[in-house]
Simulated scan of single mutants.
Amino acid sequence: MKIKKVGVMAITALALMASVSACKNKEKIAERERPADEVLVNVYCSGEDYFSNSKFFRANSVGESMDQSTSKKKAMSNAKADLASAIQTTIKGTIDNYVNSTEVNNVEQLEERFEGLTREVINQELVGTKTICEKVTKTSSGNYKTYIAIELSGDEMVSKMNERLSKDEILKVDYDYEKFKKTFEEEMKKLENR
């Protein structure tokens, strides 16, 4: 019985050593592939955890200034601009696909009204963004650097758009919320593949 336990422990230890060795080899290979005149930079509040997905629009940015508050304002402003751009692209795709799949005679007028109303909603909703990561550093030159990541719920966005679109007298005639929401969700899924 003791021999069996020792055997299992030995196999486990060998497996652990092999996996650690494999990780170190991968790091060495990656290090060799890096050009000699370049240094890997780790950027706070960025990476896979901060990408947009089927549930959230996300954006991140960096701001630098001699003043800490100004560095945060720069980072937030840039992140919101990136977020608005991502939302606008998704909404544009949603509207195009929704309107094209709807049999309506006044397609051009319908698209214009959708786009105008959704622009209003986007501008209002950007105020409600949630900060999901914030790091502040001080550079060797004495400047402050703020790294920030923000997000906005796709469900909240489509809900607010529905609220606004269903109040429009012209759109109300041809507007189908379930169809619009389905089209929106399909566009949100595309964010995961980017």
Rank of each mutant, 00 (worst) to 15 (best):
I3W: 03
K5M: 11
V8Q: 09
M9E: 09
L14M: 11
A15V: 14
V20A: 13
V20W: 06
V20M: 13
S21W: 12
C23V: 13
N25H: 11
K26A: 11
I29R: 04
A30R: 06
D37M: 10
D37N: 15
E38W: 07
L40K: 12
L40F: 10
V41Y: 11
N42R: 09
S46I: 04
G47Q: 05
G47T: 05
G47Y: 08
S52G: 13
F57Q: 08
F57H: 08
R58V: 10
A59I: 00
A59T: 01
S61K: 02
V62C: 03
E64A: 13
S65Y: 09
M66L: 15
D67W: 02
S69Y: 07
T70P: 00
T70I: 09
K72C: 02
K72I: 00
K73M: 14
K74Y: 15
A75H: 03
A75C: 09
A79W: 07
K80N: 12
K80S: 10
K80L: 13
D82V: 08
L83N: 08
S85H: 05
A86I: 03
I87F: 00
I95T: 14
I95P: 05
D96H: 03
S101E: 13
S101H: 06
S101D: 15
V104M: 11
N105G: 10
E108W: 03
Q109H: 05
Q109K: 05
E112T: 12
E112I: 11
R113W: 02
E115N: 15
G116D: 11
R119Y: 11
R119P: 00
Q124M: 08
V127S: 11
G128S: 13
T129W: 01
K130W: 00
E134K: 14
E134S: 14
E134F: 01
T137Q: 06
T137I: 14
K138M: 14
K138H: 00
T139W: 08
S140R: 10
S140T: 15
S140H: 04
N143L: 14
N143V: 01
Y144Q: 10
T146M: 04
I150C: 01
E151P: 01
S153H: 08
S153V: 11
G154M: 07
G154C: 05
D155E: 15
D155T: 06
E163A: 11
E163D: 13
R164H: 06
S166F: 02
E169V: 04
L171C: 09
K172S: 15
V173R: 13
K179V: 04
T183D: 03
F184K: 06
M188W: 03
L191F: 04
R194G: 07
R194I: 14
